[in-house]
């Protein structure tokens, strides 16, 4: 464990808790894409298959349970909660996320480190996580206004993966044989997708004005 990875995990944890707290307290999911949340639940479900078979550390298991629990709770809130579901605008959240899942499955079957069920599922979860934010970014472009909690949520999500890139660089230089091209490339693609959001987020913060994405 190194400081970059710990900071990345804490940032990631904080992003999902910010979102869960927002939905739970103001009983609204306005501006949140259910599709992105469903994709994240799928990412965790396919990545943490080994939670019951391979024990790595108490920290690792606890964090996996928290991520699984929070992502499925968020999906439940938006789909089932009688008040929250009313604030979900399904007309705007129209990104066909099934078009993301199939290419990720095919890519995971073609490009992986080892052709085993667990490894292919793990690779699928990496590719899917890289593109999971797209429905949310499209929704933001459409609704144009971003309430600051949603903005913070997306900022933290992007920041967590950027910290993970620093972690991979650190591990590459400090550990023998630590080479995971697939992880590195999908993590880089994921962070680049946030780049333009970061640009507008930083400028709105610097000019202390409401965050507006260009049409």
């Amino acid at each position: 464990m190194n400081i970059f990875r710990l900071a990345g995990d804490m940032t990631h944890l904080f992003s999902v808790l910010v979102l869960l707290l927002k939905i739970h307290t103001i009983k609204s999911c306005a501006g949140i894409s259910l599709k992105t949340q469903e994709l994240y639940a799928l990412v965790f479900a396919t990545r943490y298959l080994d939670i019951f078979t391979d024990y790595i550390s108490l920290y690792n298991t606890c964090m996996k349970l928290i991520f699984l629990g929070s992502s499925f709770s968020i999906v439940w809130y938006i789909r089932r909660h009688k008040i929250v579901r009313r604030s979900y605008d399904k007309e705007q959240d129209t990104f066909r996320h099934h078009f993301l899942i199939l290419p990720c499955i095919i890519l995971a079957l073609l490009i992986n480190e080892k052709f085993t069920v667990k490894e292919v599922m793990w690779t699928f979860s990496l590719y899917l996580e890289a593109v999971a934010i797209l429905p949310q970014l499209v929704l933001l472009q459409r609704t144009r206004n971003i309430d600051n909690l949603t903005g913070q949520y997306i900022f933290l999500l992007g920041a967590y993966r950027s910290l993970y890139i620093l972690n991979w660089i650190y591990r590459y230089f400090t550990e023998q044989h630590y080479v995971h091209w697939i992880t590195w490339i999908s993590g880089l693609v994921q962070t680049l997708l946030y780049a333009d959001f970061f640009y507008y987020y930083f400028h709105s913060w610097k000019n202390n004005e409401k965050l507006q994405l260009p049409a």
């Binding site: 990631h12 964090m63 991520f67 480190e113 080892k114 490894e119 993970y164 044989h177 630590y178």
Partner: peptide, 10 residues
Amino acid sequence: DDDIAEHDEL
């Protein structure tokens, strides 16, 4: 190459 080190990251 050695067996893929299990994925110890989240």
